[in-house]
């Protein structure tokens, strides 16, 4: 499936990626090449094949419902771009 510039812009929006307008053509070409390559998958019949989401047949382990983490908020927020009074700051959302 070939993607055009408008497809790239739409996908970039879904992925919340700012793409330089001068790069859109190149991305369209690269992504189309990759999808064309991936289209080989259609050559094999997969009816009744169970999708494999994970390499090992395992079930999620359960643990005791007890607190194991200590409060390290200050430690974690020390590497945040902007915090105030223990809160992460982002641009105003509600006017």
């Amino acid at each position: 499936m070939a993607l055009g510039p408008s497809d790239v812009e739409k996908i970039a929006h879904l992925a919340r990626l700012a793409i330089d307008p001068t790069d859109v053509e190149t991305y369209a070409r690269n992504l189309s090449d990759i999808l064309a390559f991936v289209d080989q998958l259609e050559s094999v019949d997969t009816r009744d094949v169970t999708p494999m989401a994970h390499p090992l047949d395992m079930t999620q382990r359960l643990r005791e419902d007890v607190v194991t983490e200590t409060d390290r908020r200050e430690h974690f927020q020390a590497i945040a771009p902007a915090v105030d009074k223990g809160l992460y700051l982002v641009p105003r959302v509600i006017e």
């Binding site: 929006h13 992925a15 919340r16 990626l17 700012a18 793409i19 991305y27 992504l31 990759i34 982002v90």
Partner: peptide, 24 residues
């Protein structure tokens, strides 16, 4: 705004191959 924060942070922070794979 918040959307601009997400988009430009990711657009500027990731290189071309990472962006390609995120988009695929």
């Amino acid at each position: 705004d918040l959307e601009d924060l997400y988009k430009r942070t990711r657009g500027e922070g990731f290189g071309a191959e990472v962006k390609r794979r995120i988009m695929i």
